[in-house]
């Protein structure tokens, strides 16, 4: 049993939230929520659980999976409420990615740290492209112009960089034996 796996029968709301909120929030972001929606649905997820007087924690892993399931269902309900027409997120696929990367690190801190160090291994041009895209929200055309390549080239550069990041993260996670 991992060090952070702590079976418990007594529900401590504060502890439950502290232990799992980052995991739920990150999971919702991976499902495509923006920050504000992830904030809202994370709160609602915990409220749903804490309102249930008969909720019992068996293990952190089971609770984490349960919270993710509720979060996913809330997201689906939200889409329905808003009458939003968009592709429904596929929880099976994202769960598979989550399990592979976040694994038993319930909150996903390790994978973010791994990603942070992997990003330093990228070429400077790839780092510039990603920073422009994700920090400055630049368009592909703007990124291409800054790097002297076409927008298509910028897209390919970022795609390759993300692929490298995925491989690097998975390797690091395997090395740390977080992911079995």
């Amino acid at each position: 049993m991992p060090a952070n796996e702590s079976p418990q029968s007594d529900l401590n709301a504060g502890e439950l939230i502290a232990r799992h909120q980052h995991g739920v929030w990150r999971y919702l972001r991976m499902l495509g929520c923006d920050n504000a929606t992830a904030d809202d649905l994370t709160q609602e997820t915990f409220l749903r659980v804490l309102r249930r007087e008969n909720f019992i924690q068996h293990s952190d892993t089971a609770t984490s999976a349960y919270l993710r399931r509720i979060a996913f269902n809330l997201l689906v309900s939200r889409h329905r409420k808003l009458g939003r027409v968009q592709n429904a997120p596929d929880s099976t696929l994202i769960d598979e990615v989550w399990d592979r990367w976040a694994g038993k690190d319930l909150c996903g801190d390790s994978v973010v740290e791994a990603l942070r160090s992997c990003m330093k291994l990228l070429t400077e041009r790839a780092q510039i492209a990603l920073r422009m895209r994700f920090q400055e929200e630049a368009t592909r055309v703007e990124i291409g112009t800054a790097l002297g390549i076409s927008d298509h080239g910028a897209r390919n550069l970022m795609q390759r960089a993300k692929q490298q990041l995925r491989d690097c993260v998975e390797q690091k996670m395997a090395e740390e034996n977080i992911v079995e």
């Binding site: 994370t42 709160q43 989550w98 973010v112 990603l130 994700f134």
Partner: peptide
């Protein structure tokens, strides 16, 4: 799916960390 997940994590690395929502929830 992987790309969507990587995008979410990269965005976090570049600035938006998960907030502490404990107080709001409680």
């Amino acid at each position: 799916t992987e790309e969507q997940a990587v995008d979410a994590l990269i965005t976090e690395v570049y600035g938006t960390s998960p907030p502490d929502l404990s107080q709001q929830i409680l």
